[in-house]
């Protein structure tokens, strides 16, 4: 395999895992609540800003960096709780169009809040020193920070798979997702499970913001660049399917990377072709979650 192909695969994987870190919370909340949260990118952005405010532009070590990402995750989780109480809870028994409009409004609100607090200047956060360097593999320059992102994405996927398929909590969530009425009749506290699912989704968004902030200039629009890919991955993978979203993220990353390497003059076009093909070939996604077909 040529070094160029190796680089495309590596870079695709790196991009795919960055997409997955953002998409995980999005597909999680859809899987449980059947709500497509258009404000997810905005909460990712808030997580990034919180990480910047807490940890500054130069993280002292990778442990500090991870601790700051967890603080951002917790803070956005609290915002998720408030969002659930004030907005999402009221939308559970109404047509999904209302949820789309409400979360779109929430997205604009979050951007406004970010501008009011942090202004419109750009900020740049650097990777922690342990991963702030490159290694050369087969003539390709590979950032150690992107290896860290790949590792974090894989670990997150493994954790979500274990939680969803190997724990009681996951089984309860799946039960509520499949049939909330029946879950309630067997004694499951459905409102609590739904609230915890929302909080978990927001925690994931905040964590993604904290982990990916060294990858991008920080601005009130930073969420938009990631969330577009995240939405594509959720659609291609199957709404509500973590496994499908994970694979779709890798696919999107590799296609995007190959596009940039081999067809730079048609930058960005390949993923739209992929999306169109996927919608025609598998309109319900690669791994449609139960209840979405």
């Amino acid at each position: 395999m040529s070094s160029q192909a190796v680089f495309v695969l590596f870079n695709g994987m790196a991009q795919g895992m960055a997409f997955f870190l953002v998409a995980a919370g999005l597909t999680w909340v859809f899987g449980i609540l059947k709500i497509l949260n258009l404000a997810h990118g905005a909460f990712f952005m808030l997580g990034a800003y919180i990480a910047y405010s807490v940890g500054g532009a130069w993280p002292a070590s990778i442990w500090t960096f991870l601790a700051v990402a967890l603080v951002a995750a917790a803070a956005v989780g609290v915002l998720g709780y408030l969002t659930d109480v004030l907005v999402l809870r009221r939308l559970r028994n109404v047509d999904y169009h209302y949820a789309l409009i409400a979360t779109f409004g929430l997205m604009l609100f979050c951007e406004g809040v970010a501008k009011a607090i942090w202004g419109t200047d750009y900020f740049a956060v650097m990777p922690p020193p342990e991963v702030d360097r490159a290694i050369v593999v087969g003539g390709s320059y590979i950032s150690v920070y992107t290896l860290f992102v790949i590792g974090t994405g894989l670990a997150l996927y493994a954790a979500l798979e274990i939680v969803m398929h190997r724990t009681w909590a996951g089984k309860i969530m799946r039960a509520v997702s499949n049939d909330p009425w029946m879950a309630g009749t067997v004694g499951i506290n459905v409102p609590l499970v739904l609230m915890l699912s929302v909080v978990a989704s927001f925690v994931l968004a905040g964590f993604a913001g904290g982990v990916l902030v060294p990858n991008q200039a920080l601005s009130p629009h930073v969420g938009a660049s990631f969330v577009l890919y995240a939405f594509m991955a959720v659609v291609i993978g199957g709404l509500g399917s973590i496994r499908g979203t994970f694979l779709a993220c890798i696919l999107l990353g590799i296609v995007e990377s190959a596009n940039a390497t081999f067809m730079a003059q048609y930058g960005g076009i390949a993923i739209y072709i992929l999306l169109a093909v996927a919608l025609v070939w598998k309109p319900n996604g690669l791994f449609p979650a139960q209840g979405t077909t």
Binding site: Q15, A18, Y141
Partner: peptide, 20 residues
């Protein structure tokens, strides 16, 4: 010239080309 998109968010491919 190495080209990219004006609003691109990932430059690893172009950076690799520049470094090489």
């Amino acid at each position: 010239t190495i080209y990219t998109q004006a609003t691109a968010t990932d430059f690893r491919t172009q950076i690799n080309q520049l470094m090489s």
